[in-house]
Simulated scan of single mutants.
Amino acid sequence: MKIEDGSVVSPKGFLADGVHAGLRYTKNDLGVIYSEVPANCAAVYTQSHFQAAPLKVTQESIATEDLLQAIVVNSANANACTGEQGLLDAYEMREKCAELFQIDKHLVAVASTGVIGEFLKMDKIRNGISQLSPTPSKESAVAFQQAILTTDLVMKTSCYKVEIDGKPVVIGGAAKGSGMIHPNMATMLSFITTDACIDSSSLQSLLSDVTDKTYNQITVDGDTSTNDMVLVMANGKADNHPLNEQHPQWGEFKKAFQLVSEELAKQIAKDGEGATKLIEVEVTGAKTKHEANVVAKKIVGSSLVKTAVYGADANWGRIICAVGYSEASVDPEDIDIYLGDICLFTNNRPQAFSEELASDYLKKEQVNITVHLGVGEESGKAWGCDLTYDYVKINASYRT
């Protein structure tokens, strides 16, 4: 069941807060998620060769005993490509947060997002951490959600509840991401909390699997960030029997977990810098699930497809081109292309369709493209957004 006003503090035992530390002009820029007890955890990270300092510190924390109790996050500055000083600053963020909650430092994860190649203003970070006072209130969750944004226009949240062993289990999530989105693991930043009782190994396996179907299937601009990370904490407060793949209700928990992740991923794609539309591509009739996902992401990531959608031009030739260079198995004689319910191409032949109706469809807030490859039974989806003039404006002056 979807919880409409849910957040990262909806699961039992989780608190949050966000404050304005002065890293940005006026908006919140420093936040924290805190669990009343140490929580089992899992994470996935960017595959970039230039992993930011916070990711290295977080990986070290988790490696200690697969437990986390707090996540401290700053926006405005990515603390990436900042050398030894950047690493020291990330360690200090971890230590100051641990001191605030009087917990071991390895129970703290660190995340940062913003401009690459600039040092953190640690005097403001220190003061900001001292001001954090997390609560389980809706207002505190919103304060955290605001604190992690950069060029985002909207906050991204999702929350679902599922009954496990007769106990209500809640999964809540918050994410940020608008530009530099072409994940090869996750997304910009995503944080998921749950009161489920589940061991870290099972949680990691679940996250890795779901990531490939959700976060890794979105793209805004084809660029993978130095700071991409998804973190999950499960504190066991729901008091269900331990979850793993042998649990009779594992499938129900996995479905709810995937719904949270998929909603967050789609919200990121929809809020792409300068975007006006969400694009969903579904590929069917593929030889393998992997090839279906690859083709879907190639289509939604094509600059030519993205600009055609922005211009409300039903130029299906651009879709064909993206399929053609995907290196997936394809039968050119048995490909179908649909724009919503409008058939554009089938049996290797263009179809007569109303350009006016197709253009009207492309002016909607969500555009669905379906491609049938005709070589198998597998399917996959990917999400992205249109490419607009505003994307260029935003990124031409990102630092200024």
Rank of each mutant, 00 (worst) to 15 (best):
P248G: 07
P248A: 09
P248F: 03
Q249Y: 02
W250H: 09
G251W: 12
G251P: 11
G251V: 09
G251Q: 15
E252M: 06
F253P: 03
K255D: 14
K255S: 11
K255V: 05
A256S: 09
A256Q: 02
L264P: 08
A265C: 01
K266W: 05
Q267K: 12
Q267W: 06
A269Q: 09
A269H: 12
A269W: 11
K270T: 09
K270G: 02
K270A: 06
K270N: 07
G272C: 01
G272N: 04
G272Q: 02
E273S: 03
E273F: 01
G274F: 02
T276Q: 14
T276L: 04
T276W: 13
T276I: 00
I279G: 03
E280Y: 10
V281R: 12
E282T: 11
E282P: 08
V283T: 01
T284P: 06
T284Q: 07
G285R: 01
G285Y: 05
G285C: 02
A286I: 02
A286G: 10
T288N: 01
T288S: 06
K289N: 13
K289C: 09
H290E: 12
H290K: 15
A292L: 05
N293M: 14
N293D: 09
N293H: 15
V294R: 08
V294S: 07
A296D: 01
I299H: 11
I299N: 08
G301V: 08
G301F: 06
S302N: 05
L304D: 13
L304Y: 10
V305N: 03
V305L: 01
K306G: 07
K306N: 07
T307A: 06
T307H: 01
A308E: 12
V309E: 08
V309G: 06
Y310A: 10
G311D: 14
D313W: 11
A314M: 05
A314G: 08
A314E: 07
N315R: 08
N315V: 04
W316L: 00
W316F: 03
W316D: 00
G317R: 09
R318F: 11
R318Y: 13
I319M: 12
C321Y: 15
A322D: 06
A322V: 08
A322N: 10
A322K: 10
S326H: 08
S326P: 09
E327K: 15
A328N: 04
V330I: 09
D331W: 05
D331G: 10
I335G: 13
I335P: 13
I335D: 13
L339P: 09
G340L: 00
I342Y: 12
C343T: 13
F345M: 05
N347S: 14
N347P: 04
N347L: 04
R349E: 14
R349Q: 15
P350C: 02
Q351T: 11
A352G: 13
A352D: 14
F353Q: 00
F353V: 00
E355S: 12
L357A: 15
L357R: 14
S359N: 07
Y361F: 03
L362A: 02
L362D: 04
K364S: 10
E365Q: 12
Q366K: 15
Q366D: 06
Q366T: 05
N368K: 14
T370R: 10
V371K: 06
H372I: 00
H372E: 04
L373P: 05
L373E: 06
V375A: 05
G376D: 04
G376I: 00
E377F: 03
E377W: 03
E378N: 04
S379H: 07
